[in-house]
């Protein structure tokens, strides 16, 4: 019964809530205008600048790197690991662990690499999450601005990651790619097949679906909000040209004072 609900009913609820929720949030954002020009340095004066400036923030977390290396380590590693984990799930499950066959590896090597990468990214993301949690609890400033939901988000992510890691480390508790792919395909095709009866897998999927439903109504939307916000700050701006009409500078013209070369133009020329 629980497997049926988590495996065949909840996925559709979660997907609908997620999709409509995200669209609702995006709609709130575009409904309001960019009223004034509130750009920040580095100013963007060409479309390339805009892409570079927003890209540097999105890919390298540039301003965070500049201002707080300790936070940057936790946050950047977490996001990179998250990217690896998500793309690993997608590619690994779709190709049944044979993704590296396409770049010349043997099937067994590919499966080995897939397992290795999956395990290491899974452990990395867990460590990063624990570090971020530790930081939230121990740094006074961060603790006082946190509300309960800030911790709940971390616990939810940790729950998903820890369950996933257990399945990796103890294969007896885990599940193969093939039944997962069959189950996911069923959901996508609108003809759900019975969920594999693996307890930890069911817990893993339950938590993921809760996350999907929480996502649009939480701070996790910063993943999209970041681009919306940077779009305001890095709008293109062109400086007006200097130069005044009708000036002759008669007071300085034709007069070369004797201060030595250093004095004229401050020696900076």
């Amino acid at each position: 019964m629980a497997y049926y609900f988590i495996g065949s009913i909840l996925p559709y609820i979660a997907l609908v809530v997620f999709t409509i929720g995200v669209l609702y949030r995006l709609g709130r954002w575009v409904g309001a205008r960019i009223v004034h020009r509130i750009v920040l340095p580095p100013f963007s004066s060409t479309p390339t600048d805009v892409v570079v400036n927003i890209g540097a923030e999105a890919v390298f977390f540039r301003s965070m790197f500049r201002m707080d290396k300790k936070l940057w380590i936790g946050a950047w590693v977490f996001h990179v690991a998250l990217f690896l984990v998500l793309s690993g799930h997608l590619v690994g499950i779709y190709t049944l662990g044979r993704e590296f066959v396409y770049i010349g590896a043997s099937v067994s090597l590919s499966t080995y690499l897939s397992d290795l990468l999956g395990l290491s990214s899974g452990l990395l993301i867990m460590l990063a999450l624990l570090y971020l949690l530790y930081r939230r609890v121990t740094i006074n400033e961060v603790r006082v601005i946190s509300s309960t939901s800030d911790y709940l988000h971390l616990f939810l992510l940790l729950g998903i990651v820890v369950v996933g890691d257990i399945m990796r480390v103890f294969p007896a508790t885990g599940i193969d790619y093939a039944p997962v792919r069959a189950w996911v395909t069923g959901i996508i095709m609108g003809a759900p097949v019975a969920m594999p009866q693996v307890p930890l897998f069911a817990v893993h999927m339950l938590l993921v679906q809760i996350l999907l439903m929480v996502f649009p109504f939480s701070k996790l939307m910063h993943s999209l909000g970041m681009f919306a916000n940077r779009w305001i700050l890095h709008k293109m701006y062109l400086e007006p040209a200097p130069g005044m009409p009708g000036i002759t500078a008669p007071a300085g013209e034709a007069y070369k004072p004797d201060f030595g070369s250093q004095a004229i133009n401050g020696g900076v020329s």
Binding site: R25, G31, A32, V35, M64, L71, I139, M221, G225
Partner: peptide, 18 residues
Amino acid sequence: KKFRSFVMAMESCTKCGL
């Protein structure tokens, strides 16, 4: 409903404390 800058400030903070 008017200022997107305001909506984004209200809705995107992750409380990182930076």
